[in-house]
């Protein structure tokens, strides 16, 4: 495996998998779909896409991916989660479907559907100083938010009023919004940097 073309998995049970694969390929990664434990072999970083978090959780358990994914996170694999992916990375969840689990890893509390229903979904320009001075075009779709973050968590972005929508903790990165649908690739680039330096 070439170190300059790392293999990055996108959890592909449900959601906007195609958009993430495209961004990763454009950045020069070898992007692969992950639906089975064997497909994690050789994967050096992982994206948890947007989608319906309760459905993705259910399918990870049905198809034996939950424990391999938890093991990969525990072993320090760089992971980036968007929207439903942020929910999956959270240690604590508000507004879960009965019995819904998360993979965990990020010491945060995340609230599902924090901004309301689809009528309240929105686009905005978001300052993310860690990514430079150009703001991020952020698309929030029935999005979650971080309602509490532990001491090891860095807040990368807040909305005006202080609602936390992007966080990082070691190799784990999460956004409540979808840079992958608006042509923004700096979060994926950050994931790749983490992979290449690990």
């Amino acid at each position: 495996m070439s170190p300059i073309r790392p293999r990055i998995g996108v959890l592909a049970l449900q959601g906007d998998v195609r958009e993430h694969l495209r961004v990763l390929e454009d950045l020069g990664a070898e992007a692969v779909r992950v639906r089975r434990p064997t497909e994690l072999e050789g994967v050096r970083g992982l994206v948890l896409p947007g989608g319906e978090s309760s459905v993705i959780d259910r399918l990870t358990r049905t198809f034996g991916l939950r424990e391999p994914l938890r093991a990969a996170i525990a072993a320090g694999m760089p992971v980036y989660g968007t929207c439903a992916g942020m929910i999956l990375l959270a240690d604590r969840l508000e507004g879960a479907v009965a019995g819904q689990l998360t993979l965990g890893g990020l010491d945060v509390t995340v609230r599902r559907n924090a901004f309301g229903r689809q009528n309240e979904s929105f686009e905005t320009e978001l300052a993310v100083p860690e990514l430079g001075t150009v703001p991020v075009a952020a698309t929030f779709i029935r999005a979650p938010e971080v309602t509490a973050a532990g001491p090891a968590v860095s807040v990368l972005a807040e909305l005006p009023g202080g609602r936390i929508v992007a966080v990082e903790q070691g190799p784990l990165l999460a956004t409540a919004f979808h840079p992958e649908v608006s042509g923004e690739n700096r979060f994926h680039r950050r994931l790749l940097e983490r992979v290449l330096s690990s």
Binding site: A12, L13, Q14, G15, D16, V17, R18, E19, G50, G51, E52, C83, A84, Q118, S121, F122, E123, T139, F140, I141, R142, H178, V181
Partner: peptide, 11 residues
Amino acid sequence: VKRGLAEMLKG
């Protein structure tokens, strides 16, 4: 935003 929700329903 409108098309985006449908993207999230895929699969």
